[in-house]
Each structure stands twice: as C-alpha cells, then as structure tokens.
C-alpha cells in the first residue's frame, strides 16, 4: 500500500489542483460548529476540527433531493409522466472525513445496494465520491468507536487515510481511486508507512469509554422487545429526532411531491422514526403511536434488528453525536449495555 508524505506547505496548493477535477466537500466552521459543506473556490477544509455536528452523510444522501420532475399541464404531451431529475454525478471528494463516518456509509450501503434493488441516487453519489479520511488523534469524550467495530484509524470506506504528523500528513492510499486523487493533487513524495501503527495504538488508548454489545447477537429479539425497561428508558425522550438527524447511520426517508403551478418535483427527504407520522396508516391506525414504541424501534433497529439481519455488527459507529446532542441526555451507550446485559425471566 502506497504511503505519500504531504508537507503542509503544499497542502493548500494540492487542494487547489483538485478543484478542476472534483467537487470538493470538507469540514468548515459554520456559526459555532463545524459542518461538512461543498467548498467554494476560496475555501479549504479546516483540518483542525474535532468532529462535525452533523455527519457527512448528506454528501451522498442530501437531506432533500429531487428524484423526478413532472408536468401537470395537460397540453404537454408528456404530462403526468415522471422524468429523471437533473443530477450531477461528476467526481467529488470529501476531504478530512472521520473514520466513524466512513464506516457509517459502508453500513448504510447495505440498505441501498441489495440483490434485488439498487438505489440509484445513493449509489451514484457514493460511487462518484473519493473519500479522504483524517485519523482521529484527539477523540472526544463521547467517542466509543472502538466498541462499535470502528476506531480512530479505521480504514473501512476510505480511499485515502491521512494521519496528521505535525508539519506534514502521511497519506495512505487505500484504493485506486485514492491513488488517483493523490496524483491529481500533485502529492507524490514518498511517505513513511511506519507512523500509522504506533499512532493508531496511541489514539485507541485514548478512547476509554467502552460499550458492551457482544451478547446482542445471541439474544432473543422478542425478549428484548418485551423487556420491561423501555418505558423507563424513554421517559425523558421528547421524540425531537435530533438523534436521527445527526446520526451517520440513520437513513430513513420520505417521498413527497412538491408542485409549483403546473410543474412539480418528486422529492426524497430525510425522515425520522421518532415521529408518529412516520408509521401512521391511512385508516388512522398507528403501530407506533406511543413514544416508548418509537424509542424502542430506534434502538432495536440499531442494536438488534440490524445485527441479526446482516451479521456485520451494530448499526452504530460510536461517533457520539447523539450522546452529545440529545436534549434529554439519553445515552445510547447506557441503552446498549442494558440490552446486552438483559436476561429475560424464564
């Protein structure tokens, strides 16, 4: 595997070289927090951030995105027929993404890329993107990635992984796509592969928060579903949906038609299992009309249903965003431990 050294004094120049071949996305300070956004021609990614408030899932899965356009004008010979919405799937690159967020996209991919169906919007964006990661040398207190099948130097889902070594980045090219990007930026100096292992060990040692999930696979789903703790755990929850909004592995969406005059667009928008409308039937019946049912759905999906369905671990990467941002202090780590330790009375 090729390792390239990028002196920080040629970093900005390399980023500039990439602009002609890629749409660039990266962390930028927005108000009081870092967010991922498409970089304007005078912006460079701010690599000094700890973590962004929202995950970069929007780079491949925008919060709102047009799926089709249509005309309602009956004089138009093609009225009421769906037309592909214009899309830009030219090469794009995310610069400075955290390993947890890249792993999250690999997990979400399992939902959108199946044997029977392939979601063209998600997949085309994903395939068009080169993911350049930035390893975490100073994790947050809420990070528990090492308990969630991930870690501060985890490489899954990346094309390039950068490690900040003071005056330079060491860049590990993990895929051909990654090598191509490094070449396009003009970064060619041979690097030192040996820095990764010790830095990885050092970073992992800083993550002291551990979550237990090893028993979840073997638990009976119905026992966990019927466990007596859901009402108590969900007591403080206000179903605000902040957790689903910030979560890099939450992918649920809604489809809505938006009309203006005789033209319209069929949109896909992020949705949340925290709202009762999410599951409300036309008849008025709602299988999850109570708060604890929605709360249980979210954690059972992440920590049990997904685990059982794919056998690829949790649908959680330990980024800690929901822990930091929940206004009611609900902590997925506590819930995971509780589920993992639960024994149904026989």
């Amino acid at each position: 595997m090729k390792v390239i050294k990028i002196d920080k004094n040629i970093w900005a120049g390399g980023i500039d070289s990439l602009r002609s071949g890629y749409r660039l996305f990266g962390p930028v300070m927005q108000g009081d927090a870092h967010e991922y956004k498409e970089l304007t021609s005078d912006e460079t990614p701010d690599m000094a951030y700890t973590n962004t408030r929202l995950s970069p899932k929007s780079v491949v899965f925008p919060q709102s995105e047009p799926m089709f356009t249509y005309s309602l004008d009956e004089n138009n010979p093609e009225h009421h027929i769906l037309k592909d919405a214009p899309k830009d799937y030219s090469p794009r690159a995310v610069i400075g993404m955290r390993p947890c967020d890249a792993k999250a996209l690999s997990l979400v991919r399992m939902n959108f890329d199946t044997e029977e169906y392939r979601d063209p919007f998600w997949m085309n964006s994903y395939d068009a993107t080169t993911f350049v990661g930035l390893a975490c040398d100073s994790p947050c207190e809420t990070c528990f990635c090492t308990s969630a099948g991930c870690g501060p130097y985890h490489e899954e889902g990346f094309d390039v992984l950068l490690s900040d070594c003071g005056d330079a980045y060491e860049a590990k090219a993990l895929t051909e796509k990654g090598e191509k990007l490094l070449a396009a930026a003009g970064w060619t100096a041979e690097g030192d592969a040996s820095v990764f292992e010790p830095k990885k060990a050092e970073a992992e040692a800083k993550i002291v928060c551990k979550v237990e999930s090893s028993n979840l696979r073997g638990k009976n789903s119905l026992d966990l579903y019927d466990a007596p703790f859901w009402k108590e755990l969900s007591f403080a929850c206000i179903n605000c949906g902040t957790c689903t909004y910030a979560c890099p592995t939450c992918w649920c969406f809604d489809i809505q038609d938006e009309n203006k005059g005789t033209e319209g667009v069929r949109m896909r928008n992020w949705d949340s299992c925290m709202t009762s409308l999410f599951t409300l039937h036309g008849s008025g019946h709602n299988p999850r009309d109570q708060k604890h049912q929605r709360f249980r759905q979210r954690f059972m999906h992440k920590l049990k249903y997904f685990v059982d369905k794919y056998d690829k671990g949790l649908m959680c990467v330990g980024c800690g965003r929901c822990v930091q941002q929940c206004p009611a202090n609900i902590d997925i780590r506590t819930i995971c431990n509780k589920m993992n330790g639960y024994e149904a009375a026989s």
């Binding site: 939902n111 959108f112 199946t114 029977e116 169906y117 979601d119 789903s221 579903y225 992918w251 649920c252 969406f253 809604d254 489809i255 949705d271 299992c273 999410f278 599951t279 299988p287 759905q297 059972m300 999906h301 049990k304 249903y305 997904f306 059982d308 369905k309």
Partner: peptide, 13 residues
C-alpha cells in the same frame, strides 16, 4: 419506497 429502503414498514427485522 416499497423496496425495503425507506425504513418505516418494519415489524422487527
């Protein structure tokens, strides 16, 4: 969605 992607119609897994 009707194709197993949008996430709302589940019963368990």
């Amino acid at each position: 969605c009707g194709i197993g992607m949008c996430g709302r119609c589940n019963i368990g897994k």
